[in-house]
């Protein structure tokens, strides 16, 4: 079965995409879905950006995120504190879910992408289970909510502006970095290119 023949995953229309067409940007003629992005060299950048995100996320977890001062009181919170705010009694599952949405799932996505694609970039044989890793990474996309958390932070800052003085810690800026780098990475990810590269790398 040739990889040149594909069906639009959104509306099921079939296309014959020879390599010269798949190397450019193509869209489904019926529903407009972007079938190919055609940046075969982008895989290296996807892996690089995923690695950058992992490093930044490490900083996010361990460094102070926000610093709050009200009168003689002062409170410094890491992202871990923010997540564990729910961790009493029946709120515990929510803490774990929030932790998953903003740290674990984004980190897992970056890790899976590196695991599946780094061998392709380094011209090594595919890692065992590389296909499953890439599938899970694609599947997890809507559940990684780092950028939504950032908007939540902005709302919280406005709510607190009247009652306290706030300072952004290094983790805050690292988190902004994660959001920007992850968004950049997602614009470079062409599913067709990734799967083709992974399939061709088996030899």
């Amino acid at each position: 079965m040739s990889g040149d023949n594909i069906a639009c995953p959104v509306c099921d229309v079939m296309y014959h995409l020879p390599p010269e067409l798949a190397d450019g940007e193509t869209r489904c003629a019926r529903c407009g879905y972007r079938l190919t992005l055609g940046q075969s060299e982008a895989i290296t950048r996807v892996v690089g950006l995923a690695l950058t995100s992992v490093v930044l996320m490490g900083m996010v977890v361990f460094l102070p995120f926000l610093d709050l001062e009200a009168g003689q009181f002062s409170n410094s919170a890491t992202v871990y504190d923010a997540v564990m705010g729910f961790s009493t009694g029946i709120m515990m599952p929510l803490s774990l879910a929030v932790m998953g949405f903003i740290i674990v799932l984004p980190l897992l996505r970056f890790g899976l992408l590196i695991y599946a694609l780094a061998p392709v970039v380094l011209h090594r044989p595919n890692a065992p289970g590389a296909n499953a890793a890439l599938r899970v990474a694609i599947r997890l996309k809507p559940w990684a909510m780092a950028e939504i958390f950032m908007v939540g932070v902005a709302v919280a800052l406005v709510k607190l502006a009247g009652m306290a003085t706030l300072h952004m810690g290094p983790a805050f800026w690292a988190f902004v970095g994660v959001v920007v780098v992850a968004a950049l990475k997602d614009t470079l990810m062409c599913r067709n290119t990734l799967w083709t590269a992974l399939a061709n790398n088996k030899a």
């Binding site: 926000l66 709050l68 009200a70 009181f73 409170n75 919170a77 504190d81 923010a82 997540v83 564990m84 705010g85 729910f86 929510l94 803490s95 929030v98 949405f101 903003i102 809507p142 559940w143 909510m145 939504i148 958390f149 908007v151 939540g152 932070v153 709302v155 919280a156 709510k159 607190l160 306290a164």
Partner: peptide, 20 residues
């Protein structure tokens, strides 16, 4: 997915505003 904003706001406020 953007509906999740308010849940995150609650999480952040809870973490920060603990002044006895």
């Amino acid at each position: 997915r953007w509906s999740m904003i308010d849940v995150f706001v609650v999480a952040i406020l809870t973490a920060l505003v603990q002044f006895d």
